Simulated assay, not measured.
Amino acid sequence: MNFRLITELPSTAIPLLAAAITARDAMQQAARATATTADELRRYAKFSRPGQPSAHIVQLRQKQAAARMDSARAKQAFLGAANGFIHASGLAVPKGMSMEAFMLECIRQTAEDITGRK
């Protein structure tokens, strides 16, 4: 991979890296909320009677739809921040690798550089 150490990054790229890390955290939190809501909906839907759904099931479906929207927005924010960082730092995404996977690897390597741990 053609990733540089954090000390070798241009000064304009460091705030963009921080924004990408924040967006990644929001993306992970939204994914957890989506999974939790889906699990809760499955648990209650399993014992529901056929026919018109109860008010509680309807609320859970609305909550699941909102969680999915939040997840999509968080992923878009992450990809936007990743795109800005990649362009500002002069990096190139390798062929056959998604921008998301490349950026997650960059964040992981940066964390290793800072902490000294793998």
Results as ranks from 00 to 15, higher is better:
residue 3 F to Q: 05
residue 6 I to G: 02
residue 6 I to N: 08
residue 6 I to Q: 05
residue 7 T to A: 11
residue 9 L to C: 03
residue 13 A to P: 02
residue 18 A to M: 11
residue 19 A to S: 07
residue 20 A to Y: 04
residue 20 A to N: 06
residue 22 T to E: 15
residue 22 T to C: 05
residue 25 D to T: 01
residue 26 A to E: 15
residue 26 A to K: 13
residue 27 M to I: 00
residue 27 M to W: 11
residue 27 M to R: 11
residue 28 Q to R: 14
residue 28 Q to E: 15
residue 28 Q to P: 00
residue 29 Q to Y: 05
residue 29 Q to G: 01
residue 31 A to M: 11
residue 31 A to T: 08
residue 32 R to D: 06
residue 33 A to D: 14
residue 35 A to D: 06
residue 38 A to M: 05
residue 39 D to V: 00
residue 39 D to W: 03
residue 41 L to D: 11
residue 42 R to Q: 12
residue 44 Y to D: 09
residue 46 K to S: 09
residue 46 K to D: 15
residue 49 R to W: 10
residue 51 G to C: 08
residue 55 A to Y: 11
residue 60 L to Q: 10
residue 64 Q to F: 03
residue 69 M to L: 14
residue 72 A to M: 12
residue 72 A to V: 09
residue 73 R to S: 10
residue 74 A to I: 02
residue 77 A to C: 02
residue 77 A to K: 06
residue 77 A to V: 01
residue 79 L to T: 01
residue 80 G to S: 12
residue 80 G to R: 11
residue 80 G to Q: 14
residue 81 A to S: 10
residue 82 A to H: 07
residue 83 N to H: 14
residue 84 G to H: 14
residue 85 F to W: 15
residue 86 I to R: 08
residue 86 I to M: 10
residue 89 S to L: 06
residue 90 G to Y: 14
residue 92 A to I: 09
residue 95 K to G: 06
residue 95 K to I: 05
residue 96 G to H: 03
residue 96 G to D: 05
residue 96 G to Y: 05
residue 96 G to T: 00
residue 97 M to Q: 11
residue 98 S to K: 05
residue 98 S to L: 05
residue 100 E to W: 05
residue 101 A to Y: 07
residue 103 M to F: 06
residue 103 M to R: 01
residue 104 L to F: 10
residue 105 E to Q: 12
residue 107 I to H: 06
residue 107 I to W: 08
residue 108 R to C: 04
residue 108 R to Y: 07
residue 111 A to N: 09
residue 111 A to C: 03
residue 112 E to P: 01
residue 113 D to I: 01
residue 114 I to M: 14
residue 115 T to E: 09
residue 116 G to P: 03
residue 116 G to Q: 10
